[in-house]
């Protein structure tokens, strides 16, 4: 009887899961079928890896993969170096409340203001400096949007480290930098892991800034490459775009699966009143 009582819940949940996953499954079908328009069937009739091989051999898909990787990792490193040290100071109890509110407003502003409001003038600046043909502008843009997130997120973690730990290290004659890097940072590693995953996912999939700041095809990131595959030819190459999309999700999917605990911590931090 219990089973009967619970079954409507499962019906609803399963229906929603079907709606959520069917488009994704369909992409898998498109990516592995030779000719999608001749026979549209639920089960792929002719399994092939032709499209996946094609994007690597004919469309040089390694290049955008490498570009996305470079841009994501470089911006992430800069964000962590700047962000962690700022959050360390700002998250301290002794930091004046007045500054804290100003900071809060600033962080909120960076998140809510239309990204294009600083991207337009920044584009001009970069153009004047002749840097638009490099990866620098897009890395800068990623740093700009991810930095406030890291600072905001990490402040709470630094705040939870007892100040006595710092004091005793100071007594032992450790310099400020040693206290920070050798004593405090290892204590907030779980927070660093969570925020790294969130920023990585945001950078890897980012689209608007890439459209604005990446000019030369040699610097194209995955989303831009997929967009060209999607529109360049008169007939969209569905198979290629689908397999390219699937390949691009692998790093993110692996991160989400193997770092699930940290990802969950990142997503739900602050969602629970303490």
């Amino acid at each position: 009887m219990n089973w009967l009582k619970a079954s409507p819940k499962y019906v609803v949940l399963t229906a929603v899961v079907l709606c959520t996953l069917f488009p994704v499954y369909w992409m898998l079908v498109i990516a592995t079928q030779r000719d999608i328009f001749s026979k549209v069937s639920i089960l792929p009739s002719s399994l092939t890896l032709e499209h996946v091989i094609d994007i690597f051999t004919k469309d040089n898909y390694m290049l955008p993969l490498a570009n996305s990787f470079t841009i994501t990792v470089t911006s992430l490193l800069i964000v962590l170096v700047f962000g962690l040290s700022s959050a360390y100071v700002l998250g301290r109890r002794t930091f004046r409340i007045a500054y804290k509110n100003t900071l809060l407003v600033w962080i909120l502003l960076v998140r809510v203001l239309p990204p294009i409001t600083f991207a337009l003038p920044l584009y001009i600046m970069m153009n004047d400096a002749g840097l638009l043909s490099t990866k620098l502008p897009i890395i800068l843009a990623h740093v700009l949007v991810n930095l406030p997130l890291v600072i905001w997120f990490m402040m709470a973690f630094f705040y939870s480290v007892p100040e006595e730990i710092e004091e005793s290290a100071r007594m032992d004659g450790a310099s400020e930098f040693v206290i920070y890097s050798k004593v405090i940072l290892p204590l907030v590693l779980p927070g660093i892991a969570a925020v790294t995953i969130l920023s990585f996912m945001a950078s890897w999939n980012e689209y608007l800034y890439s459209v604005i700041f990446i000019q030369s095809p040699g610097d194209f990131t995955i989303p831009l490459k997929l967009a060209t595959l999607n529109s360049e030819q008169e007939l969209t190459e569905w198979g290629k775009v689908a397999s390219g999309g699937l390949v691009s999700v692998i790093p993110v999917l692996l991160t989400a699966v193997f770092m699930q605990k940290h990802l969950m911590n990142g997503l739900t931090a602050g969602a629970v009143k303490e």
Binding site: P23, Y207, G245
Partner: peptide, 11 residues
């Protein structure tokens, strides 16, 4: 997990 371009494509 998917980027907007991939989601846009599927849809």
């Amino acid at each position: 997990l998917f980027s907007a371009i991939v989601v846009g494509f599927i849809w």
